[in-house]
Design a protein around this nucleic acid. Structure first.
Lengths: 239, 239
DNA sequence: GAAAGTAACATTGGATCCAATGAGAGGGGG
DNA sequence: CCCCCTCTCATTGGATCCAATGTTACTTTC
């Protein structure tokens, strides 16, 4: 299908705009729209079968969340994350997820621990099975990883905390980090074991350890992502 | 002057929309536009001397940041904060500001400590002088308070952290907390002394204590704000 | 042949238009 | 007397319009 108007079964108002923003965000997150790419209003409008008006409102939302940058009279481009900015953001995210893990200790149930363990195992299996399979494997992997992290955040019982973590996550396309973990067995194993350590701390009811393990894990993930963007920018300058 | 078009000297594009969003946000933050109030596009448009188009984009930005809610075909209203939501948000803010304080310890200079001390003293003096003077005193007080907190955040050296803290702050109108502190001498004194304790920890280079004091201070402020909203909602239901 | 100017084209951006939905008043029926 | 229906008005929301700005390719000149 050339357009996705079928999916947007005649929504209207805030619903339509939010939906547009969500779909554009997804395309950026998955890398379908690459970093630095121009977002032309007319093109997006025809893609989604609407006029430019709601598209522009959706772009404003994405601008506010920092995923795109809007230059006066030049339009919107997907933000290219600076490595230092990634490190800063992940330091914040690490602290927030550490808080979430600490809080989750007091509220987590046996069933939820099993759920988390299953998500982690699934993520590992997907990584092993999908080596080199490219985009779909990365996509599935990212989903399981998101399940793991968002589940802990939601168990924390603080909706604002979940939202704050999510807001940071939505700032950077993360298909790249999935790529790393899927294709590099060392990263994959480390990632799996870090999750397991967090799980153990949660199961033990050790809030301090859960927080520390989570903080360390997220910082490490951020470092990998920052490195990837460093590599990428130097490649771009060469190529 | 009836309109503020003078201030908006023919801006255009993202600059105009951002400016509109900023001005509307200010009016909400100061209470000039009260909580729960309807925001009519046509009214705002004529107030600012523009058409409804950029106003709608500005409203989308405010919607994304959570300050207003947009209901389909019914327009935008200023969000009325639920007390539990305020507590949750301030728990997050407390953690972020604690991190900022801890990080600031390693970077703060003697001059900056003096600056902070001056801001705190000014805030106290303004509170004493402005008792009962109403809106202007509250406004000045809130500004000095903001200086104190944003300065520490900026000293932390993590721009994302500053932004995350700011994003949470911009979610709730805070004229009310200023009102509390200006008019209640006990709150005023406690606020002053909490700031002093944070300053001492910063001056001593004690990251742990700075973080703990800051966390406690912000949680307490959040509790006050939440209480205020509780009181308000029960009053509204009676009146 | 290169650089600068210019003219056509593409794109953004605010204003305006009209359809659609919602709110409220007035009137008719139970 | 109260309830409900309908008609009208206010407001939102997407589409369209036109001016303004930016970009690119072509031409002209040195």
């Amino acid at each position: 299908m050339t357009t996705e108007e079928l999916a947007a079964t005649r929504k209207t108002g805030a619903a339509l705009v939010d939906d547009l923003a969500e779909q554009i965000r997804n395309r950026i997150m998955t890398g379908e729209i690459p970093i630095g790419a121009q977002l032309r209003q007319a093109e997006l409008a025809s893609n989604f079968g609407v006029s430019r008006t709601p598209v522009r409102e959706a772009l404003r939302q994405l601008q506010t969340s920092g995923l795109i940058e809007v230059l006066p009279n030049k339009g919107a481009v997907v933000s290219v994350p600076a490595p230092w900015d990634v490190r800063e953001a992940y330091e914040v995210r690490a602290e927030l997820e550490a808080l979430a893990a600490a809080r989750a200790v007091r509220r987590i149930t046996r069933g939820q621990i099993d759920q988390l363990r299953a998500a982690n195992q699934e993520m590992y299996d997907l990584s092993v099975a999908g080596r080199g399979d490219g985009v779909p494997a990365q996509h599935d992997h990212r989903r399981s990883n998101d399940v793991f992290h968002t589940l802990i955040a939601s168990i924390s019982g603080n909706a604002r905390l979940s939202k704050a973590i999510n807001d940071i996550n939505e700032t950077f396309p993360r298909n790249v980090s999935a790529q790393l973990i899927v294709n590099d067995s060392r990263h994959r194993d480390e990632n799996f074991q870090e999750h397991e350590r967090i799980l153990e701390a949660l199961a033990d009811g050790d809030a301090q350890r859960a927080a520390d393990q989570m903080r360390e894990h997220v910082i490490k993930a951020g470092e990998q992502l920052a490195r990837w963007y460093e590599l990428r920018s130097s490649t771009v300058f060469r190529g």
